[in-house]
Amino acid sequence: MTIAEFRAMPADHLSGLLLALWWDAKGDWNRAHEIAQDVQGRDAAWVHAYLHRKEGDLGNAAYWYRQAGRAVAKDDIAAEWERIAAELLSRQ
């Protein structure tokens, strides 16, 4: 699935971290954060880190990047969203 197809997909076809990213792309950061908080693991920590980075809470984001085992992202926030989405989609 491409990023464009993912963005166009209805929410009821998604779950977990992809659903969190989908809501974030639709402008609902709070819903995305609620979903990400309920998922465990390194990928969840990565999504959580991205969300806090987007929010501007860089200290909290740094904690979640460490939990994810990833370097703190420094590129454009939209590029990071696409990178996370592409990696998660590649595992479907």
Rank of each mutant, 00 (worst) to 15 (best):
M1N: 07
T2D: 14
T2Q: 14
T2V: 08
A4T: 15
A4P: 13
E5A: 14
E5K: 15
F6E: 07
F6I: 05
H13W: 00
L18G: 05
L18D: 00
L19G: 00
A20N: 04
L21D: 11
W22P: 05
D24Y: 12
A25V: 05
K26V: 14
G27M: 10
D28H: 14
N30I: 00
N30H: 13
A32C: 06
H33P: 13
H33F: 08
E34L: 01
I35M: 01
V39F: 05
G41H: 02
G41I: 01
G41S: 01
D43Q: 14
A44D: 06
A45M: 08
A45L: 10
A45Q: 11
A45I: 07
V47P: 08
V47Y: 06
H48S: 07
A49H: 00
A49P: 10
A49S: 07
H52C: 08
R53C: 10
E55W: 08
D57Y: 03
L58I: 03
L58V: 06
G59V: 06
A61C: 00
A62K: 12
A62C: 09
W64Y: 15
Y65H: 10
Y65K: 10
R66E: 12
R66D: 14
Q67C: 12
Q67K: 15
G69H: 01
G69S: 02
G69L: 01
G69N: 08
R70Y: 00
R70M: 03
V72K: 01
K74L: 07
K74Q: 11
I77W: 00
I77K: 03
A78K: 13
A78N: 15
E80K: 11
R83F: 07
I84S: 02
A86Q: 10
E87S: 06
L89I: 12
L89Y: 02
L89W: 03
S90V: 01
S90G: 15
